[in-house]
Structure formats: structure tokens, C-alpha cells
Design a protein around this nucleic acid. Structure first.
Length: 343
DNA sequence: TCTGGGGTCCTATAGCCT
DNA sequence: TCTGAGGCTATAGGACCC
């Protein structure tokens, strides 16, 4: 049986801000957007003090401000958080090279071949991260990634939770379906329409039925995941498949020149960024979101993979021409897909 | 009234080819 | 030549993750 650790930083962005600005410690703070509760943006991370007011990730900053007028709003300083993240990942690499990066604030470690027990390793990791950064994390230990991740979520903050296959019935099945990795708000409500509210109730549905309801790949995934089954390996190295930049306008716009100009800048930026990293892309996609939040895309395959700003801007501009723009535009974005490293 | 930005993966459909 | 089955690619949209 494998031994997998999931390390998840507690309220990462907010905790970093409270570390570097001691006057913020113990206060309700919200990190998101440009840090202005009057402008468009969402909450990236709320400190535990702010969560008591009902503020949570993904919430509009304006809504968070209404719930908690006393909260302190800070802009996202992504570069700084990435630097802290890098130091934490370096610490983890000292324990094993078998690491899957799970984003800026989490990672999976396969410690199956280590001499020390997973719990000893987890304790040591928590101690080292605390010493080096002053930050706390929660660690889940299980026989696969799925259960390790759910375990790390069971006791937060500063938790250390072990889940064995025998624990699935008692500790996973009572949870709401939304807690299962891969179930978002849409699937949760589709399940509730059928009277399924807990992971245990989901596990009672046979595989054929789930495939009928949700299609082949997702139906099978739900069948296995609800039972705590997950054979997926750790992915220790991966190459990007796409790269994109998008902006939401501070106010919806119907100025075509402004939209075209913004698109050109985004395309220029995406081209430079992939080129700098030595990639070329095969296709270009333009995304528009209108004032009613309807989102549409148009894409075009290039004659040959490219990182040329001119080529990518031209393709993006052609895509934009194919839209019927009769509503105000809220967001515009450019994505380059099919990335390959040039020789 | 609100609903960011940067990704991944899956599904459906349509066209083309064998 | 017609018809159909599949495979493959391009395109558009949707759900989910941090």
C-alpha cells in the first residue's frame, strides 16, 4: 500500500501578509484583487478571523466588504507568495524527490519507500516549514492522493490527519458530496435533485447509473472516488499545455477600439511570455464575457506553431472579428494552446 | 447584486478520411 | 457509387481546481 502525504498551507496568502506585517496579526484580513473593496475582484484568501464574518474564497470583494466592513483588504502580491512557495517546495524536496506540485500552496509526497513513518515525516515537515517561514500547514496521510487531500482538509488549521481505507465509511461517507474532490456546485445540485446529499449516499449508487447520469469518465470517477479508490500516480514533472491572459474591465464597455486595443496588448504579452520560455503554440483562442456573464470563445489554428507576437495578434484579431458583439463586454482574454518547446 | 485569473480535462458536434 | 462505421482533428462550451 502506498503512503501519500498531502501538505496544504493554511490560509496561505492571508497568513503570509500577517507574518510580514505583525500589526495585521489577529485581525480579519482579506487578500484579493487590487485590495480595493469597491473595485471588481474576488477574495483569494480570507484570514480565519475574517471567515467568522462569513467571508470565503471566490466571493466578490464588494460582498465581502458588506459582510465585514471592518475587514482589512489587501492586494494579491503573487510574486511574493510564489517566492515563499518556492522555499516551502525546496523544504519538501529534502524529504523526497517524489513530489507532485498541487499549485502555489499545496503538494503531494510519496513516502512509501522512506524509513521513517509517514506521521514522523509529517511532523518534521510541519516543524521545518514553521521554522523557515513562520507559517502553519495541514497534512493528510493516506494510501492515495484523493484520501490524503481529504484528510488534510478534515482538521484545519495546523492539522495532521491519517485516513486508512477502513476509515472511509466513518469519516468520509458522512460528509456532504461537495467535499469530494471533483464535485463542484453544479454536480452537487444535480445530485441533490436526486436526493443524494452525502458521499455515502453517492457510494450507494451503482456504477452503471452514475455513468448514465454523468457520462463515462466522470461517472466512473464518482463511483470510485466515493469509495475512496484512487490509483492515480503522482505527476512529478509536467509541461504546460496552454498559456493565457485575460482582464475584466472595471466597467463593462461597448467601445470597439478599446476592446481591440486591450486584445492586442494581451496577445502581445502572451506571445512574449511563451517565447521567453522557449515555447511555440499551435492555436489561438479569444474569450469574451458579456455584461450578462455569458462567455463565448473563438479559436483559430495557426499555419505553423508560432511565438511571433505579430502572428498571434493577427490570429486573435481574426477571432475577435467572428464575434457578434451586441452586448457590452465585461472580460476579454487570449489563450495560446498546443504548446511545444522549440528545438 | 455579485460573480478574478490561470490552468486542466471532458464532452459534443462537425468535417474529413479510410 | 453508395452507405456506414470508426478514427482523427478542429472547434465550442462546461465543470472543476487553486
Amino acid at each position: 500500500m502506498r503512503r501519500i502525504l498531502h501538505v496544504d498551507m493554511d490560509a496561505f496568502f492571508a497568513s503570509i501578509e500577517q507574518r510580514r506585517r505583525p500589526e495585521l496579526r489577529g485581525k480579519p484580513i482579506i487578500v484579493g484583487g487590487r485590495g480595493d473593496p469597491e473595485s471588481r475582484g474576488v477574495v483569494s484568501t480570507a484570514s480565519y478571523e475574517a471567515r467568522r464574518f462569513g467571508v470565503g474564497s471566490g466571493m466578490a470583494l464588494r460582498t465581502a466588504h458588506r459582510l465585514c466592513p471592518a475587514c482589512i483588504f489587501l492586494p494579491v502580491d503573487y510574486e511574493h507568495y510564489a517566492e515563499v512557495s518556492g522555499r516551502i517546495k525546496a523544504i519538501l524536496h529534502a524529504f523526497t524527490p517524489l513530489i507532485e506540485d498541487g499549485g502555489i500552496d499545496e503538494a503531494y509526497l510519496d513516502v512509501s519507500e522512506e524509513e521513517r513513518s509517514p506521521a514522523e515525516i509529517a511532523e518534521a515537515i510541519k516543524r521545518r516549514i514553521k521554522e523557515a517561514t513562520g507559517l502553519s500547514c495541514s497534512v493528510g496521510i493516506a494510501s492515495n492522493k484523493l484520501l490524503a487531500k481529504m484528510a488534510s482538509d478534515l482538521q484545519k488549521p495546523d492539522g495532521l490527519t491519517v485516513i486508512t481505507p477502513d476509515d472511509v465509511k466513518s469519516r468520509i461517507w458522512p460528509l456532504r458530496t461537495r467535499k469530494l474532490v471533483g464535485i463542484g456546485p453544479k454536480t452537487q445540485s444535480r445530485l441533490e435533485e436526486r436526493g443524494i446529499r452525502t458521499i455515502g449516499e453517492l457510494a450507494a449508487v451503482d456504477e452503471r447509473t452514475l455513468v448514465e447520469w454523468f457520462g463515462n469518465a466522470y461517472g466512473r470517477y464518482l463511483y470510485e472516488a466515493s469509495r475512496g479508490i484512487d490509483e492515480s500516480p503522482l505527476v512529478t514533472h509536467w509541461e504546460p499545455k496552454s498559456h493565457s491572459r485575460e482582464v475584466t474591465f472595471e466597467a463593462d464597455t461597448d467601445d470597439p477600439a478599446f476592446v481591440r486595443n486591450t486584445l492586442s496588448k494581451l496577445a502581445q504579452r502572451v506571445a512574449e511570455e511563451i517565447g521567453t520560455k522557449g515555447y511555440r503554440g499551435r492555436s489561438v483562442t479569444v474569450k469574451l464575457r458579456f455584461s450578462d456573464f455569458e462567455t463565448h470563445t473563438r479559436s483559430q489554428t495557426l499555419e505553423a506553431p508560432s511565438d511571433s507576437p505579430e502572428t498571434i495578434k493577427e490570429a486573435a484579431s481574426d477571432c475577435l472579428e467572428r464575434f457578434d458583439i451586441s452586448k457590452k463586454v465585461r472580460l476579454i482574454g487570449v489563450r495560446v494552446e498546443g504548446l511545444h518547446k522549440e528545438e
